[in-house]
């Protein structure tokens, strides 16, 4: 009996790393994730627009923060997860890891575009300019190009094995660059125009503002999970269209 138990546990672990087992799990996770995303988003917008008070310095325009900061966070966070999955794929040679990484990239690019767009709309009334070539903005723009490069490189190599590995290597190289562009804030400070909102500046405001930020961030997180798993299903479908398990799954209710 004991022997069986010790053998079953590792088998279960690897069971979840094949497209066949993940596909139905993803199908269950997707509606839940999107549902939570909508609920959290509604709650976040309610807190952000109806509970959080007007900023005494910036007026109402600061309410962009509830979409700007979560999208900027997610844009970086998604890249880190892509690096993680790429590393997993290169080390353990698992197809699914590369699929996960690829499923995340377009959402990461969308988050980056949103962060840049809302940043520009926030910068115009507060800094008086849409765009500054300062470290933060430039690093975010580089991140967008990293996402685009990652997607384009993966798409332009027909051989799946090579496409997976090559784009994973690119993701790792981009990760090398991230700390460099991140720490350049200090070296580039001469070009930096005025600081944006600081959460510690007005403690009373911070509570409701912070709540709104947390709710919106969780909502974006849930959206990312839903979108990534949805795209994972697309990737699996595309690659394993001929395999029999998909047919069987289709036949099931």
């Amino acid at each position: 009996m004991k022997k069986i138990v010790t053998e079953v546990i590792p088998l279960n672990f690897w069971k979840y790393s094949t497209p066949k087992t993940v596909f139905p799990i993803a199908s269950k996770v997707i509606p839940m994730a999107f549902l939570f995303a909508v609920i959290l988003c509604v709650a976040g917008i309610y807190v952000g627009f109806f509970v959080a008070p007007t900023d005494f310095q910036q007026g109402e325009v600061y309410r962009i923060i509830f979409i700007h900061v979560p999208s900027a966070w997610m844009s970086m966070f998604i890249y880190i997860i892509i690096v993680f999955w790429s590393l997993m794929g290169l080390i353990f040679n698992t197809r699914l890891s590369f699929m996960m990484a690829q499923s995340l990239a377009p959402t990461g690019a969308v988050m980056t575009v949103i962060a840049l767009w809302t940043g520009a709309l926030w910068g115009k009334p507060t800094w008086g300019t849409w765009w500054v070539w300062d470290a933060r903005l430039t690093s975010e723009l580089i991140l967008l190009f990293l996402y685009i490069g990652y997607i384009v490189l993966g798409a332009s190599i027909d051989d799946i094995r090579r496409s997976d590995r090559t784009s994973a290597i690119l993701a790792l190289i981009g990760a090398v660059n991230i700390p460099i562009i991140y720490f350049s804030v200090e070296w580039w400070s001469t070009l930096h125009q005025g600081a944006s909102i600081s959460l510690t500046a007005a403690p009373k405001m911070a509570a409701s503002m912070f709540l709104g930020l947390c709710l919106m961030s969780l909502s974006f997180w849930m959206y990312t999970i839903g979108a990534a798993f949805y795209r994972l299903r697309i990737v699996i479908l595309k690659r394993e269209k001929s395999s029999t398990w998909l047919r069987e799954f289709e036949g099931a209710p």
């Binding site: 109402e60 325009v61 979409i67 700007h68 959402t107 709309l121 979108a227």
Partner: peptide
């Protein structure tokens, strides 16, 4: 009106949700 910042605030929210919509 958003205290006179309507273009910036609603421009941010509308375009962001539009992008999510396009992606979906």
């Amino acid at each position: 009106r958003m205290g006179g910042y309507s273009i910036y605030v609603w421009g941010s929210y509308c375009v962001s949700f539009f992008l999510f919509f396009i992606e979906l």
